[in-house]
Design a binder for these strands. Structure first.
Length: 645
RNA sequence: GCCGUUGUAGCUCAGGGGUAGAGCACUUCCUUGGUAAGGAAGAGGUCAAGGGUUCAAAUCCCUUCAAUGGCUCCA
């Protein structure tokens, strides 16, 4: 029998007989490891622990803690879910059932049966019962004809549709217990690994994601190798729910919606408006330092402008319907770009003027579909941290880089570290439809963007077919507390609109030349950004951004006058403070200030009044002791200084 | 927009074919207190809106609106 060489992740090379399995390799290291491995990555491909390895390979043994280990675990769990469903509801039809970031789902056609959350317990019990049987997941290569025959006999039209798109020779079935599924694998050794099961939710999902297709029932679930891990996960979900910006926004009186105002049209309450103004002041200062000029534009414009800009054919559906005045259609603006381009065109430009950077917190209106609205994250009226930069090709790189630097500066101030930078490119097949038909410019600008990204060393991912119609872009992706993904900020290249708006500058040779345009919105919209920050800070806005920085708590009414004196001094130092003058005990006032997430509390009683001091309690309980009001004001301002730099 | 779920006081929720309930919040009074809930009283609701069934509807049915979990979408 011939031997093969197996290279492990630590670089060590071991010899095994040809046909060795990952399980046997693990066993040769330790029994404990053999018990814990879920799958194996062999030369980059994840396979079962029981599959024969027939050539020299790089092997890493995947455990639950590995991302691919989890995904294998959950993929197998989806099959277990399917087996349980088939046992409980014979005749159901199966769509697809993949693993996702946390857990898995399976799309099911229940026919006439109406599956509801009341069925969850029964389903979980059945899954656990089947899991205990420790049924092995077995892999079988089948011919296309065999595969079609099996599912035709079973009467599963969705699987047949999938098989028809596969090539003969690369079709495999996986089987466990009484269930067989079309599947690429890999899977767990047996169902016994699954010790804890939770069915999470139910949703409609179009077959193959196409809204023209039938809607199937999607069942989301999650499983774990230990019950304790499931409990921890459920607790984590509970905690995440408490951070949901929709709850916090109501609780902290930041924003509200009203039926008479309309869906997706947030009302900013005084505290929310205060945060907006603080953010704006910060952005304006930063942008001024970065050489931006502020402009202002109206909220509506004539149809002709959106025809010219090219937006209308692409986005008419997501704009509010036009209003007609004197036979002319006017639209609420859904983007600020065209207005800014008109501002650029309003005065002649020389190459000496470039780059020109126009910034505006512009209010836009987008008619998002009703089902897409989501708290502050998807709304119909939005105030965008917008700016457009008009530059020469030679200036592009430094401008693009400067914009990226601005992002990173902001992210540092806000402590944003969990994000993905996504470089969105066009799809050459869709030129002239989804994208402006200028193949050369696409190539050129995408290359420029990639170069800047590489040179600045920022980690990023590239995705096809996600660009704006006028050029490639970089999006910053973030996740809401409940795990939904959003684009927070965007930085886009535009080589199309200068042409459409006949924008030009006079170059050194006295010729007209088109500028390149950058669109950027690092602080997103007020709506999405504050929604994000509510969750990011769990409602505890940092001192500089908190609408209520200090709560003054007189121990009794006797100290009301002294409290007002302190309040006035703080006001003179531009510190935002309030007095809680209710006739409640200090413990109660502290509790309420904590619930309002006020960062600093001043406790004023006999001692403070006679010494002319304040006693400082930080949010969360830290005691900073007593100090003069002046010293406290200096402390607040130095903290703010630290937070902003 | 599509499928599912939900809608009762400012908030969180209970109830449920026979005239509406709790806790917190709010108002007033008592209390004047030192680091996460002092006490009492009071006020507050066309039970989302419209229609239907019924002697009687907040409750059952239908429609609409809104929220919500997903899907699709996201300049």
């Amino acid at each position: 029998m011939s031997e093969i060489h197996i290279t492990l992740p630590d670089g060590s090379v071991r010899q095994y007989p040809k046909g060795v399995t990952a399980h046997e390799i693990a066993l040769s290291i330790s029994e404990g490891l053999a018990r814990n491995i879920i799958a194996a990555k062999v030369n980059g491909m994840v396979i079962e622990t029981g599959r024969a390895i027939t050539e020299d390979s790089h092997v890493s043994l995947l455990k639950w803690d590995d991302k691919e280990g989890k995904s294998t675990f959950w993929h197998s769990s989806a099959h277990l879910l399917a087996e349980a469903l088939e046992a409980l509801y014979p005749g159901v039809k199966f769509g697809i059932g993949p693993a996702i970031d946390s857990g898995f789902y399976y799309d099911i056609d229940f026919g006439d049966y109406k599956f509801t959350s009341e069925d969850f317990a029964k389903l979980e019990a059945k899954m656990l019962e089947l899991a205990k049987q420790e049924n092995a997941y077995t892999r079988k290569q089948v011919s296309k004809a065999e595969a079609l025959e099996y599912f035709t006999q079973k009467g599963d039209p969705y699987k047949i549709e999938l098989i028809n798109e596969l090539n003969d020779g690369e079709i495999t079935f996986y089987h466990q217990g009484n269930f067989t599924d079309l599947c690429r694998g890999p899977h767990l050794p047996h169902t016994g690994y699954i010790k804890a099961v939770k069915i999470l939710s139910l949703a409609g999902a179009y077959w193959r994601g196409d809204e023209k297709n039938k809607q199937l029932t999607r069942i989301y679930g999650i499983t774990f190798p230990k019950k304790s891990e499931l409990d921890a996960h459920m607790q984590m979900l509970e905690e995440a729910k408490k951070r949901d910006h929709r709850l916090l926004g109501k609780e902290l009186e930041i924003f509200a919606f009203d039926d008479d105002v309309g869906p997706g049209l947030p009302l900013w309450l005084p505290k929310g408006a205060a945060i907006i103004e603080l953010l704006e002041a910060f952005a304006k200062k930063t942008e001024k330092e970065a050489g931006y000029m502020r402009v202002k534009s109206p909220h509506i414009a004539k149809e002709s402008m959106y025809i010219k800009s090219g937006h209308l054919p692409y986005y008419a559906d997501s704009m509010f319907p036009p209003m007609e005045l004197d036979g002319i259609n006017y639209y609420l603006k859904a983007m600020n770009c065209p207005h800014h381009h008109k501002i650029f065109a309003a005065t002649p430009k020389s190459h000496r003027d470039l780059p020109v950077r126009y910034a505006e917190y512009g209010t836009c209106y987008r008619y998002e579909q009703s089902g897409e609205l989501f708290g502050l994250m998807r709304v119909r009226s939005l105030q965008m941290n917008d700016a457009h930069i008009y530059c020469t090709k030679a200036q592009f790189e430094s401008e693009f880089k400067a914009v990226n630097a601005l992002y990173l500066k902001y992210f540092k101030v806000f402590g944003i570290d969990k994000y993905v930078m996504r470089f969105s490119k066009h799809d050459p097949k869709k030129l002239g439809q989804k994208y402006i038909n200028s193949p050369e410019l696409w190539k050129e600008t995408e290359e420029m963007v990639r170069n800047v990204l590489i040179k600045s060393g920022i980690p990023y991912i590239e995705v096809e077919d996600e660009a704006a119609f006028y050029g490639p872009k970089i999006d910053i992706q973030i996740w809401s507390a409940i795990g939904r993904e959003f684009t927070l900020a965007t930085n886009q290249v535009d080589f199309a609109q200068a042409e459409r708006f006949d924008l030009y500058f006079i170059n050194e040779k006295s010729e007209k030349e088109r500028p390149l345009i950058l669109h950027r919105a690092p602080l997103s919209t007020h709506e999405r950004f504050i929604g994000f920050l509510l969750e990011h800070y769990a409602g505890k806005f940092p001192l500089w951004l908190n609408p209520e920085q200090v709560m003054i708590l007189p121990i009794s009414e006797k100290y009301q006058e002294y409290s007002e004196k302190v309040l006035n001094i703080l006001k003179n130092h531009d510190i935002r403070a309030l007095i809680d003058d209710r006739s409640e005990k200090t413990g109660k006032k502290i509790r309420d200030a904590e619930l309002k997430r006020v960062p600093l509390m001043l406790i004023l009683g006999e001692k403070e009044q006679s010494d002319n001091t304040v006693t400082v309690r930080k949010q969360g309980g830290e005691d900073l002791g007593s100090m003069t009001v002046e010293a406290f004001a200096a402390y607040v301002n130095s903290e703010i200084e630290k937070q902003l730099n």
